[in-house]
Every structure is written in structure tokens, then in C-alpha cells.
Measured scan of single mutants.
Amino acid sequence: MQGVVKVNSALNMRSGPGSNYGVIGTLRNNDKVEIIKEVDGWYEIRFNGKVGYASKSYITIVN
């Protein structure tokens, strides 16, 4: 499943599904990501070869 990031500035990509996990990357508005699965309001995603987590509130699913 594919998604597009929708933010005003930047979205942190984290090592786990929560804001208490470390930041491993930064996503920008309109970045395209691969959604692997949903975990407690977060998406596990793949972006630029990295796998991490981002809040699903800021990612819109596209077909």
C-alpha cells in the first residue's frame, strides 16, 4: 500500500510506534512512502530504503 505525507513542515520517522521512540529520519510534505502495516495509530513504513514508523494522522493512502 502506498501513502503520501501531508504536513506543513516535517514529520519524524521513528524507530518504533510512538513519540517516545528515537527519530531515524525526516519526511517532508508530499513524500511518497510504502505502508507496511498499522500499529496503534502509527504506520510502519519504508522510505528511501529505511523502515520506521510515522503517525498515520499525517499520511494519506493513495492507490
Rank of each mutant, 00 (worst) to 15 (best):
M1A: 14
M1G: 11
M1C: 05
M1E: 13
M1F: 12
M1Y: 12
M1Q: 14
M1K: 08
M1T: 14
Q2P: 09
Q2A: 12
Q2N: 12
Q2C: 04
Q2K: 07
Q2G: 09
G3S: 03
G3D: 02
G3L: 03
G3Q: 03
G3K: 03
V4C: 05
V4T: 10
V4M: 09
V4I: 15
V5T: 04
V5L: 03
V5P: 02
V5S: 02
V5H: 01
K6G: 08
K6R: 08
K6M: 07
K6Q: 14
V7C: 05
V7E: 05
V7F: 05
V7Q: 05
V7P: 04
V7G: 13
V7W: 03
N8Y: 06
N8P: 11
N8I: 13
N8G: 15
N8M: 11
N8A: 14
N8K: 11
N8C: 06
S9R: 09
S9P: 09
S9A: 14
S9D: 15
A10P: 15
A10W: 09
A10R: 09
L11M: 11
L11Y: 06
L11K: 13
L11T: 09
L11C: 06
N12V: 12
N12P: 14
N12L: 10
N12S: 14
N12H: 15
N12R: 08
M13K: 01
M13Y: 06
R14H: 15
R14C: 04
R14D: 01
R14Q: 09
R14E: 02
S15K: 09
S15Q: 09
S15C: 05
S15W: 06
S15D: 14
S15F: 06
S15I: 12
G16D: 02
G16P: 00
G16Y: 02
G16H: 03
G16V: 01
G16E: 03
G16A: 03
G16M: 02
P17G: 02
P17M: 03
P17T: 02
P17Y: 01
P17N: 02
P17S: 03
P17H: 02
P17A: 06
G18M: 02
G18I: 00
G18K: 03
G18P: 00
G18C: 03
G18L: 01
G18W: 01
G18R: 02
G18E: 03
G18S: 06
G18T: 02
S19D: 15
S19A: 14
S19I: 14
S19L: 14
S19Y: 10
S19R: 11
N20F: 10
N20M: 12
N20Q: 12
N20W: 13
N20L: 07
Y21L: 03
Y21S: 05
Y21M: 04
Y21Q: 04
G22L: 14
G22M: 10
G22F: 10
G22N: 12
G22R: 07
G22W: 06
G22K: 10
G22H: 13
V23T: 10
V23C: 05
V23E: 07
V23Y: 05
V23I: 14
V23L: 06
V23S: 09
V23N: 05
V23D: 05
V23H: 06
V23Q: 07
I24C: 04
I24H: 03
I24A: 06
I24E: 06
I24W: 02
I24N: 07
I24V: 14
G25M: 10
G25W: 05
G25V: 09
G25E: 11
G25T: 10
G25Q: 10
G25D: 12
G25R: 05
G25P: 00
G25A: 13
T26C: 06
T26D: 07
T26A: 08
T26P: 07
L27F: 03
L27H: 00
L27D: 00
L27A: 04
L27E: 00
L27Y: 01
L27W: 01
R28Q: 13
R28L: 15
N29L: 08
N29R: 06
N29Q: 10
N29T: 09
N29W: 08
N30F: 09
N30S: 10
N30P: 03
D31Y: 05
D31W: 04
D31F: 04
D31H: 05
D31G: 03
D31Q: 07
D31M: 06
D31C: 04
D31I: 04
D31V: 06
D31N: 06
K32D: 08
K32T: 15
K32F: 12
K32M: 15
K32Y: 15
K32R: 10
V33T: 02
V33K: 00
V33R: 00
E34M: 05
E34N: 04
E34L: 06
E34A: 04
E34R: 03
E34T: 04
E34I: 04
I35L: 06
I35F: 04
I35T: 02
I35V: 11
I36H: 06
I36F: 11
I36W: 04
I36Q: 09
K37A: 14
K37S: 14
K37L: 12
K37C: 05
E38A: 07
E38Q: 08
E38P: 04
E38I: 09
E38D: 11
E38F: 06
E38C: 05
E38K: 04
V39E: 08
V39W: 10
V39F: 08
V39D: 07
V39H: 08
V39N: 07
V39C: 04
V39S: 07
V39T: 09
D40C: 05
D40N: 13
D40I: 06
D40E: 12
D40R: 06
D40P: 07
D40Y: 07
D40H: 11
G41Q: 10
G41K: 08
G41R: 06
G41T: 09
G41Y: 05
W42V: 02
W42I: 01
W42Y: 12
W42D: 02
W42F: 08
W42A: 01
W42R: 01
Y43R: 00
Y43A: 03
Y43L: 12
Y43I: 04
Y43D: 00
Y43P: 00
Y43S: 01
E44A: 06
E44M: 05
E44S: 04
E44I: 05
E44Y: 05
E44D: 02
I45H: 00
I45C: 04
I45P: 00
I45R: 00
I45V: 12
R46W: 15
R46Q: 15
R46L: 15
R46C: 05
R46T: 15
R46N: 15
F47I: 12
F47K: 06
F47E: 03
F47L: 08
F47P: 00
F47Y: 12
F47T: 08
F47N: 05
N48T: 10
N48V: 09
N48Y: 09
N48W: 11
N48A: 10
N48R: 08
N48D: 12
N48P: 02
G49I: 05
G49M: 08
G49Y: 05
G49A: 08
G49H: 15
G49F: 06
G49C: 06
G49V: 06
G49S: 10
G49K: 09
K50M: 14
K50G: 08
K50C: 05
K50Q: 14
V51W: 09
V51P: 07
V51G: 08
V51Y: 12
V51L: 12
V51C: 05
G52T: 02
G52Q: 01
G52D: 00
G52F: 03
G52H: 01
Y53V: 01
Y53Q: 00
Y53D: 00
Y53T: 00
Y53F: 14
A54W: 00
A54K: 00
A54Y: 01
A54E: 01
A54M: 08
A54V: 15
A54G: 07
A54S: 06
A54N: 00
S55I: 12
S55M: 12
S55N: 15
K56Y: 05
K56R: 08
K56H: 07
K56N: 09
K56V: 12
K56G: 08
S57L: 13
S57C: 07
S57V: 13
S57F: 08
S57H: 13
S57Q: 12
S57G: 09
S57A: 14
Y58D: 13
Y58R: 07
Y58C: 05
Y58G: 13
Y58E: 13
Y58V: 10
Y58S: 14
Y58Q: 11
I59V: 11
I59D: 01
I59L: 05
I59F: 05
I59G: 01
I59A: 02
I59K: 00
I59Y: 01
T60R: 11
T60N: 13
T60F: 15
T60A: 12
T60K: 08
I61L: 12
I61K: 08
I61S: 06
I61G: 06
I61Q: 07
V62I: 10
V62R: 06
V62S: 12
V62Q: 12
V62H: 12
V62Y: 09
V62W: 08
V62T: 12
N63L: 09
N63S: 13
N63F: 03
N63D: 13
N63H: 09
N63E: 15
